[in-house]
């Protein structure tokens, strides 16, 4: 059997607050298989975002291991971890985090520039532009390429953010309440889009949400409380 695309074992995370050490994650084990949608549920403050950041190598766990395709990665050099953030995982956040100075197309293209030198990028600039355009077309924004984030609706912004997360062809998408800021109709559209692309590309998908109905559309639901996993159950 192939190892899980993304796995965590024995993850703890303490935040230091002055002299105090606050445990936020207390021994989390988790594995996500290729093509699997995993919903992460839990009350506010349970440590969902923290876990997601640790899984995506944005934050270092206090103890424990993160494995990409069975390989421990949390102790790799800074540059290597940055490269894995780029190529292995894509992030989608509640507040989009688009760069306001850039158009939708530029925001997406930026993702392709992250690990390339000027010369390398110059050589592939036409292709890079075409790929970014195609992805924006896939998320339904073919006529919004030249719009700035301030000229886009919330749903459209999140679609740009999804396109950006997909550009580097990651194998895992980590989404932190991607619909938390949208009305239910728009949210449905965005979720449909994400799940459609997930199927097409056979991605592993970790979805943090407070929405039980949304969680029911996942393959598996993991419930967290106070930094530990309460339950992990397949849906249906």
């Amino acid at each position: 059997m192939t190892p899980p695309v993304l796995a965590a074992s024995g993850i703890t995370k303490n935040y230091r607050l002055g002299k105090q050490s606050i445990p936020v994650l207390r021994g989390v084990d988790l594995a996500v298989q290729q093509g699997e949608i995993l919903a992460l549920l839990g009350a506010s403050g349970a440590g969902k975002s923290t876990l997601l950041h640790v899984l995506g190598l944005l934050d270092q766990p206090t103890t424990g291991e993160i494995l990409f395709d069975g390989e421990p990665v949390q102790n790799l050099p800074v540059r290597e971890r940055a490269r894995l953030r780029h190529s292995h995982t894509g992030f989608v956040f509640q507040f989009y985090h688009l760069i306001p100075e850039l158009t939708a197309l530029q925001n997406v293209m930026l993702a392709g520039m992250m690990t390339k030198s000027v010369l390398q990028y110059w050589a592939i600039r036409k292709q890079a532009r075409r790929e970014a355009t195609e992805i924006l077309e896939q998320v339904g924004l073919a006529d919004r390429l030249k719009h700035r984030p301030s000229e886009l609706s919330g749903g459209e912004r999140q679609r740009v953010a999804i396109a950006r997360a997909l550009l580097a062809r990651p194998r895992v998408i980590l989404a932190d309440e991607p619909t938390g800021n949208l009305d239910s109709t728009t949210a449905d559209g965005v979720v449909d889009l994400m799940f459609r692309i997930q199927k097409e590309r056979n991605l592993a998908f970790v979805l943090v949400t407070h929405d039980e109905d949304l969680a029911q559309r996942a393959d598996r639901i993991v419930r967290m409380k106070d930094g530990v996993v309460l339950s992990s159950a397949a849906v249906r």
Partner: peptide, 16 residues
């Protein structure tokens, strides 16, 4: 500063 987070998430190093 708000851009620093997303650039890091996209594969930027702190130094970069």
């Amino acid at each position: 500063t708000s851009d620093i987070g997303i650039l890091t998430a996209m594969g930027g190093t702190p130094l970069g």
